[in-house]
Design a protein around this nucleic acid. Structure first.
Lengths: 335, 335
DNA sequence: TTATAAAATGTGAACGTTCACATTTAAGCT
DNA sequence: AGCTTAAATGTGAACGTTCACATTTTATAA
């Protein structure tokens, strides 16, 4: 069913190797090259990555590899728009390098999922792996066995593993948010964090160390990043007449929160200020538009690719490089 | 770097074939099986998909295949939330079958992108391909050469190709929207379509055949599905004092449109009604919440996977099956 | 016990590439 | 022409599996 290099060679009356050379732009007589190219076209030859991969363990870091895997961790599904943007950044940069990104979601709850993942990652022609989201040290080590070129994006590298990575400055971003809330004379903010062990939640805790004292009260709630959980939470607070004058959380959560506030006829920003995090595209188009801490998600992805390429090219990276992507506050109508 | 079946075999003091048999659950003496399994564990053996793929052309439809590709067409990037949901449906159903979905975006403007795509699709262990979005007949035929098991999702199958597919009832959905607008006494709707040749745009045209006469005027504009283009368009209409009393377009476009209306202090739904399409999660959380034509995006993805599995299992599908996913109007506050 | 069938295990070849090296062809010089 | 060197092209082996078939071991029956 597939056309092999041998058939192309036969048709062009040359050997397999010459065909390979043509593909590689190695020196071949012009006339021969033309015959081969024509032969490839006519048979609509597609090289078999599988076969290439067989010679892989040495080929892996060769210039021929055309793909890398972009693996999404377990919790990444909720934060849609965020990772969509990261992915876009990855793909743009990948295209720049002539690479192709194979995306895989890792679903924790499915049996054998992990084994299948590993098998996928050992597919030939994969020059490396970018991990997006949260991974445990053991998981990373497993992956390293299968493919040594790993870059981790938007997640703190767990202790005990050495992996280069790109990281948004979440703590710095949270600080900006709190500082801004203070400037807005907020006294009793409600903070909507993600799941307990999550990067974002920890960053919030980190940033609060510096600012907590300056507020009268700070209420923190963990959520699953869904709009619904934010809406419910805020609804409950309002119904229980808990006093608060601001909400801070990621953009998705803020959308849910704003809905709840609207349902109760509360004025934004008059009665309650709202500050988001991530600055997803929709922020500008909400009414009122959402003040948010901007993270350059595309850079996050793009830089990860650059790092991966460097890693592949130079063989090794100097230790556990962390490239921070800085956060910027975008003031809009909710504050 | 990778552990091969031979090493596992050696360690367990058996032949390669016995190891294979253990993996396949073929009959093997219990004691031997235990030795092999242990050996596999200790060496943390991961079978090489690449190597498996080499025997592929017959293996392809065998039960061993663990992955399929989910390919996104050129224009799919804009419609983020929509395809995120479709993907989620695909992955849930894939997990159900013990399969793993490899996502690939096809970026048109990048050179050799198409060739790389094809190479990826011919990766071993891929039991099939799901195409999401718009593809041309020639493209589909090319892919068919590389991998015969194709299902197309949310795109009309181009004439001249026989591919089974799952399709949302876009025309029906648009009819619902227009009918609803009429019920709301709308006389002069503005319609925000996608790019000219797009499925959605054509569905709008199709549905309008039946309803155009019943409106006083219908203004249709093509967009690139971005919020910004919708906002600009509506802004211009307002500034040019073009009279209209409703906006219809996909949800993303509606968000942009609503922003524009809000900027001009126009009341929704009093002065202008807004009806979306797709019913992305955010619709319910906007203020006012967005009336939208609901498409069950997860089913779209899930059914595609079921179809693919059937295709792989039975070898062939009866012609060009089209499974329609029906559309439902969700009335909310914008009408 | 030996013959016979059944169960368990092993073997060579093949899949499509590429590598390292071998061979052929062409070109340049005296 | 004949010799040397460079350029162009070809070959066998290897990558990790699996298949079809071959061989060995074990169980069963006479």
């Amino acid at each position: 069913m597939g056309v092999s290099i041998v058939e192309v060679a036969r048709r062009a009356k040359v050997s397999r190797m010459t065909v390979t050379r043509v593909m590689r732009n190695d020196p071949v007589r012009e006339e021969t090259r033309k015959r081969v190219l024509e032969s490839m076209r006519e048979l609509s030859y597609v090289p078999s990555l599988a076969a290439r991969a067989m010679r892989s363990h040495d080929t892996l870091r060769s210039s021929r590899a055309t793909c890398f895997a972009l693996v999404f961790g377990v919790d990444t599904q909720k934060a849609d728009e965020f990772f969509c943007e990261v992915t876009r950044g990855v793909e743009k940069q990948a295209a720049e390098f002539g690479l192709c990104a194979l995306q895989v979601h890792w679903l924790e709850d499915v049996k054998d999922s992990w084994l299948r993942m590993q098998a996928v990652l050992s597919i030939g022609g994969l020059c490396g792996v970018i991990l997006a989201g949260q991974f445990r040290a053991g998981e990373i080590r497993s992956i390293q066995k299968v493919n040594p070129n790993i870059v981790i994006v938007d997640s703190p590298v767990p202790p005990g593993v050495k992996v280069p990575g790109v990281e948004s400055d979440n703590i710095g971003g949270c600080r900006l948010a709190f500082k801004h809330l203070l400037q807005c004379k907020v006294k009793n903010p409600v903070v909507l964090a993600g799941p307990k062990e999550h990067y974002f939640s920890k960053a919030i805790a980190g940033a609060l160390c510096d600012y907590r004292r300056q507020f009268e009260s700070v209420r923190i709630f963990n959520t699953d990043y869904s709009m619904e959980s934010a809406r419910k939470r805020i609804n409950r607070l309002v119904e229980e007449k808990v006093g608060f004058d601001a909400v801070f959380g990621n953009d998705t959560l803020c959308v849910g929160a704003m809905r709840a506030l609207a349902e109760h006829g509360m004025q934004i920003p008059l009665q309650v200020k709202v500050v988001g995090f991530d600055d997803i595209p929709a922020c500008q188009y909400l009414s009122p538009s959402l003040t948010s801490v901007h993270i350059d998600k595309q850079s996050l992805g793009g830089e990860a690719v650059k790092m991966l390429v460097a890693l592949v090219r130079d063989g090794k990276m100097s230790g556990s490089v962390k490239l921070p992507i800085k956060a910027v506050l975008k003031k809009r109508e909710t504050t």
